[in-house]
């Protein structure tokens, strides 16, 4: 096979990660626009089992390709070698992967080494007469950049989680332009043993914070709180509200709050009744984690903050003045 759309699925505990559904959906949509058949590859120690368990979710997929890995956990160089082997064997026109912590370790490496087309953190794709187009944010998400890939035989795209809709899995739905059929299953044996160049010493699970998943109200803090010294005050407010305190990326990466409290693409995903966002600008990485909230209230001094695009209620105000007043009123 050559041409077509190859989806690089990620396995986790012997199953296909949920994020792969969105990649498949994007691939199907490209196929409907004429980009060629869709195949799904999984590089994993349990690749066969992952694909076998995924059968109900792969309507419209022409081929399932298991790439058995000699290693039980993700390793960037093994994945790099495996994807290079997959591209050589299958010559896909488009490779779709998730923009995840794992893919940060190898996708751009494969693109640079193979002189392939490449774009990351992609939020929209289309296939037209002129070929593949991809859209991604630029200038801190203020603008949208439309990209094309002239003269590239293979284009690797890392798609942002949450930017692509997923339909409910439908067993045996017909493939684009055709009858329902069972995908061909194949195995690509690559010499991956010895490719590993980093060694896992330890895996520390997240410390928990069960209160975050249980709380009906979450108080989210962002860069706008200004520094670690503001955290105790806001923790106090959270407890008055019966809320758990969480944060966007900035306060976590600046060391103001623990990383177990980070909400977003590289943190946890939450679905509280109320999400009160104080001093959060609304970077898409964070918004991806709060999409499930029933009601979002945002307080920010910047009237153009992106958080107001997704909030149900908003006020352009100083978060500390509002926090102090809220605390006073709650007595």
């Amino acid at each position: 096979m050559s041409g077509g759309v190859l989806v690089l699925g990620e396995g986790e505990h012997g199953r296909l990660r949920a994020g792969t559904n969105a990649l498949l959906e994007a691939a199907r949509s490209l196929a409907e626009q004429g980009a060629g058949p869709v195949s799904l590859a999984v590089i994993d120690a349990d690749a066969d089992a992952v694909l076998a368990g995924a059968a109900a979710r792969v309507a419209g997929v022409r081929e399932l390709i298991a790439v058995p890995s000699p290693h039980g956990s993700f390793e960037a160089h093994v994945s790099q070698a495996a994807l290079e082997g997959l591209i050589e064997a299958h010559r896909p026109a488009i490779v779709l992967a998730g923009h995840t912590v794992d893919s940060l370790g190898f996708l751009a490496a494969v693109a640079a080494r193979g002189r392939h087309g490449f774009a990351s953190d992609v939020t929209r794709v289309s296939f037209q007469a002129g070929g593949l187009h991809a859209w991604r944010g630029d200038y801190g998400e203020r603008l949208l950049a439309e990209l094309d890939f002239p003269a590239k035989k293979t284009v690797l795209l890392a798609l942002r989680a949450g930017a692509f809709a997923t339909r409910a899995p439908s067993d045996g739905a017909p493939a684009p332009g055709g009858e329902a059929f069972a995908p061909r299953v194949s195995r690509l044996e690559l010499a991956l043993a010895g490719r590993m160049r980093s060694e896992r010493i330890e895996l520390r699970a997240s410390a928990g914070e069960p209160d975050i998943d249980r709380a009906e109200v979450l108080l989210g803090i962002g860069r706008g709180i200004g520094g670690a010294e503001a955290v105790p005050r806001l923790e106090r407010l959270a407890s008055r509200l019966g809320a758990a305190l969480v944060a966007s990326g900035a306060p976590v990466e600046a060391g103001w709050v623990s990383r177990t409290r980070k909400i977003g693409q590289s943190g946890r995903t939450v679905a509280p009744r109320v999400y009160l966002a104080l001093g959060i600008s609304g970077a898409p990485q964070h918004l991806a984690g709060i999409a499930g909230a029933t009601t979002i209230i945002a307080i920010n001094t910047d009237p153009n903050a992106r958080i107001f695009d997704v909030a149900d209620h908003g006020a352009v105000a100083d978060l500390f003045e509002v926090a102090a007043e809220l605390e006073r009123q709650l007595g």
């Binding site: 693109a111 392939h116 087309g117 490449f118 774009a119 187009h133 991809a134 944010g137 630029d138 998400e141 203020r142 603008l143 949208l144 950049a145 439309e146 990209l147 094309d148 890939f149 002239p150 945002a298 107001f308 695009d309 997704v310 909030a311 149900d312 209620h313 908003g314 006020a315 352009v316």
Partner: peptide, 21 residues
């Protein structure tokens, strides 16, 4: 890896009910 076709403004879909006060 890619060629820039064009930059555009993001469509703003502000649904927030804003409170002045």
């Amino acid at each position: 890896g890619a060629r820039l076709v064009r930059l555009s403004e993001r469509a703003r879909v502000s649904g927030a009910h804003m409170l002045d006060g």
